[in-house]
Simulated scan of single mutants.
Amino acid sequence: MSTAPLSSIVDALLLDLDGTVWSGQRAIPGAVDAISGSGLTAMFITNNASRGSGEVASLLRGIGLDVRPEQVVTSAQAAVALASQHAAAGDPVLVVGAESFAQLASESGFRVVSSADERPTVVLHGHNPSTGWRELSEAALAIRAGARYIASNVDTTLPSPRGLLVGNGSMVAAVTSATGVVPDVAGKPGPAMFVQAAERAGATRPLAVGDRLDTDIAGAVASDVPSLHVLTGVSGPWDLVAAPPALRPTYVAESLLEIGQPAERLAPGAQGGFTATARGHDISLGGGAEDATPIDALRTVLEVAWRGDGFTGEVVAASGAAERALQAWW
Results as ranks from 00 to 15, higher is better:
142 A>D: 07
189 P>A: 00
142 A>Q: 07
46 T>E: 09
10 V>C: 15
247 L>T: 01
20 T>D: 03
317 A>Q: 14
14 L>M: 10
199 E>G: 04
62 G>M: 11
270 A>Q: 14
39 G>A: 06
43 M>E: 11
320 G>Q: 14
203 A>P: 00
184 D>R: 01
130 S>C: 11
70 E>A: 14
21 V>S: 09
312 T>S: 06
168 N>C: 07
193 M>I: 03
265 R>E: 14
196 Q>A: 12
319 S>N: 13
329 W>P: 14
174 A>P: 06
264 E>I: 10
221 V>P: 03
119 R>M: 08
220 A>W: 00
198 A>Y: 01
30 G>T: 10
141 L>R: 10
158 L>P: 07
149 Y>S: 12
268 P>A: 09
91 D>A: 07
147 A>S: 15
236 G>M: 05
265 R>K: 13
32 V>F: 08
165 L>W: 08
112 V>L: 11
248 R>H: 04
205 R>W: 01
316 V>Q: 13
209 V>I: 08
2 S>M: 05
213 L>A: 02
161 P>Y: 01
182 V>S: 10
2 S>T: 14
180 G>T: 05
287 G>H: 12
77 Q>C: 05
77 Q>G: 07
235 S>Q: 00
285 L>V: 11
81 A>C: 01
14 L>Q: 08
99 E>M: 09
141 L>A: 06
4 A>L: 13
113 V>R: 12
131 T>I: 13
285 L>N: 15
297 A>Q: 15
283 I>V: 13
112 V>P: 12
82 L>K: 02
74 T>Y: 04
1 M>Q: 12
114 S>N: 15
25 Q>R: 14
11 D>E: 00
126 G>T: 06
115 S>L: 13
261 Q>S: 15
48 N>V: 04
261 Q>G: 10
57 A>F: 09
70 E>K: 11
315 V>P: 15
268 P>E: 13
147 A>H: 02
100 S>V: 05
78 A>S: 02
50 S>E: 11
254 E>A: 11
102 A>H: 07
216 D>I: 02
153 N>K: 00
13 L>R: 15
246 A>K: 05
227 S>V: 02
84 S>A: 09
236 G>I: 03
56 V>E: 13
198 A>L: 05
233 G>D: 03
101 F>M: 15
299 R>W: 12
316 V>E: 14
29 P>N: 05
143 I>G: 08
41 T>G: 07
263 A>H: 11
202 G>N: 01
43 M>K: 06
26 R>C: 05
37 G>P: 10
200 R>A: 12
53 S>I: 04
94 L>V: 11
294 P>M: 11
108 S>H: 02
183 P>M: 03
11 D>W: 00
126 G>D: 08
206 P>C: 08
13 L>Q: 12
227 S>A: 14
210 G>I: 04
80 V>D: 04
